[in-house]
Design a protein around this nucleic acid. Structure first.
Lengths: 148, 148
DNA sequence: ACCATTCCGTCAGATCATCTGACCATCGTC
DNA sequence: GACGATGGTCAGATGATCTGACGGAATGGT
């Protein structure tokens, strides 16, 4: 976070640039495709919905926000028709957040853009370095992502 | 942003985990050191203050927020004694945001934590892979950071 | 020199994101 | 069946961010 201009930038900040670039690209592409009412916060929650649906609490944990915040964002996503809540058959307290049709359309666009961006990055780095980068990041995730 | 659980995660999202982990560590360490009134948004602005001071507009550009937002955050940092604004001798319209004494103390703590975290990551990955990771991220920055 | 244009920063107001604290219903266990 | 843990919501507060409008200062062309 704190790292003024100086030769060697810290690894964490270096990781931030690609992420931010991807997020900006995604948001722009989605807006261009007519999904112009999505915010980054909503996206970060939506990105964690598993195929069969995911509990609100699980979404909150993975996104590192409180369940209130997650609930708030899911409310918006639901009102906009991207997701729906269905009762969890295994637990009457819980509900599963699932992608609705409109949500699935968004995912399709997002996937395409992600592949596009990744192809650009690979072109810039070269196949080998890109593969090394992916491998290193995957290993780093073991110690930086508490919700694997 | 959109990338539900599935084998291969996209590179951008993989980049996010280390960044988030670092930011959390920094915030916790600063709070423990008595700087418990700093927010991540303030940190992201403060991180871009160059040694001699930086203009508000430049801070806003680099952090990818509007100058209004940057101004708001600098207001808070100034009120809390972390930074100060001085006239820019080369342009009467502009002012330079500089680190104040309290800000420099924060930077010192932050630097220490960053080094600590980076050492942990390097221990997990091994020297060679860590070096590859850094090199790849630095090259990736060429195409993902508009304000180098 | 003068004017138009551009740039730096602020003010005002709105909206979105996020948190803490309190609360209820249900689950699982002893 | 009573009790602590878990899933989720309600209410209220604060923080971060945006758009739009503006005033003062620099800059470049005529």
């Amino acid at each position: 976070m704190i790292d003024p201009a100086g030769g060697r930038q810290n690894l964490g900040l270096l990781c931030f640039y690609p992420y931010r670039a991807l997020e900006a690209r995604l948001l722009a592409a989605l807006a261009a495709a007519g999904f112009d009412d999505i915010t980054t916060a909503q996206g970060r929650i939506a990105a964690r919905i598993a195929p069969g649906g995911t509990r609100l609490t699980a979404l909150a944990e993975q996104a590192l926000v409180t369940k209130q915040t997650a609930g708030h964002l899911v409310d918006q996503l639901e009102r906009a028709g991207y997701v729906r809540r269905v009762p969890d058959p295994t637990d009457a307290r819980a509900r599963l957040v699932q992608m609705a049709e409109r949500g699935r359309q968004v995912v399709a666009v997002a996937r395409r853009v992600e592949a596009e961006v990744e192809a650009e990055w690979t072109a810039h780095l070269g196949e080998e370095v890109a593969a090394q980068l992916r491998a290193a990041l995957e290993r780093l995730r073991e110690v930086t992502d508490p919700y694997r």
